[in-house]
Amino acid sequence: MSRATVCLTVDFDGVSSWIHSFDEGDSPTNLSRGLFGVDVGAPRLLDLFDEHGVTTTWFVPGHTAESFPEAVESVWAAGHDIQHHGWSHTRPGTYPDAASERADIRRGIEAIEALTGRRPTGYRSPSWDFSEHTLSLLQELGFEWDSSQMGREFRPYRLREGWKASPDAPFERGEETALVEIPVSWQRDDFPAFAFDRRRGFADERAVFDMWLAQFEWMYRNVDGGVYVLTVHPQIMGYSHRLERLESLIETVAEYPDTEFVTLDSVSDRF
């Protein structure tokens, strides 16, 4: 087992996040941001990963796979893993019932199977959200792992069912399931940091990349066998200046002895 494992993950939302998750999603300008990710950002990321011999995990909504099949096929053809990210990019907590959520997940499975010829083993929920039904649906539909929650920083763990969070009683953790959680962090996601918002303005991008490196370095020093998950979006990370910073981060991390870049599926298999 390596001292440090790095998982570069790509949420290939395309236009689905603008249509299904945000107000004014049908704005031509917002949709063009998604199209930049499809037409420009994704090819640039694929070139970067190929140059450095890094295999990554792409979470692809079925909407993206069906809307832009050639773009998604290029990810698969380059040897990267494709996993489930809903059919639509709809937050699970907004579905009216379990049946609606189940239908969307099943449709996403079918879209990935049609493109890759195999059933996805892993799930990442849109906007890292779960409903009260999500965990049981993932178990019902045969998923092996998830990467949406934040109960650890650098170690996988098992998701629990039957927990209780009553406001007037002690929290009950529930019982472990077979589903492996490979945790994420808002602190290692490019969208909240870099997606332009008129109310917020611009982030200090150098500081964000420095933070990402500092988190890896802390893990390397303190967590033997730690798993570092970074999440990027082609429509965010695909810009020229960010690609250079991402490349520098990859090169720096790769210099640490006994560090490897792997897919989340590989992490789940080892766990």
Results as ranks from 00 to 15, higher is better:
R188C: 05
E260S: 15
F261Y: 14
V229F: 00
L213F: 13
S74D: 11
D204L: 08
L137V: 10
V60E: 12
R107T: 14
M1L: 08
A203I: 09
S127C: 13
G62M: 13
G34Q: 09
S32R: 14
D146N: 00
L141D: 10
R102W: 14
G226Y: 04
W128V: 03
T252C: 05
V54P: 02
N222R: 12
E24A: 14
I82L: 15
V38M: 03
R107H: 15
F171V: 12
S185Y: 04
R221W: 04
R118F: 06
L159S: 04
W212V: 01
D265N: 09
G225D: 07
L159P: 00
G108C: 11
R158E: 01
D104F: 13
R155D: 03
G142K: 02
E260P: 11
G201F: 10
D97Q: 05
R44I: 03
E176A: 15
A214T: 04
P96N: 08
D189F: 09
E144F: 03
A169L: 13
W218T: 07
H89L: 11
D190W: 08
E110L: 14
M1I: 05
W76A: 15
E251D: 10
W218N: 05
E101H: 08
E176V: 12
T259K: 10
Y228Q: 07
T177S: 06
H89V: 10
F271C: 11
G238L: 06
P156A: 03
D81K: 08
R199K: 15
Q215P: 02
T94C: 03
R119W: 00
E144Y: 02
L249P: 02
A77D: 14
S266C: 09
A65Q: 06
L243E: 01
D26V: 05
F36P: 08
V229Q: 00
E175W: 07
I109Q: 12
D13E: 15
G86W: 06
Y123K: 00
P120D: 03
L137N: 07
H89M: 10
F194N: 01
H80E: 06
H63W: 15
S131K: 09
D11W: 09
V75N: 04
T55H: 12
C7G: 02
M219V: 02
D204W: 03
E113V: 14
S21W: 08
E255Q: 12
H63E: 14
G117Y: 07
E113G: 07
P192A: 15
D168F: 12
F22T: 10
Q149F: 02
S17H: 14
W186I: 11
K164E: 12
E251C: 08
L243I: 08
P43L: 04
H80G: 06
W163A: 13
S240P: 02
L8T: 01
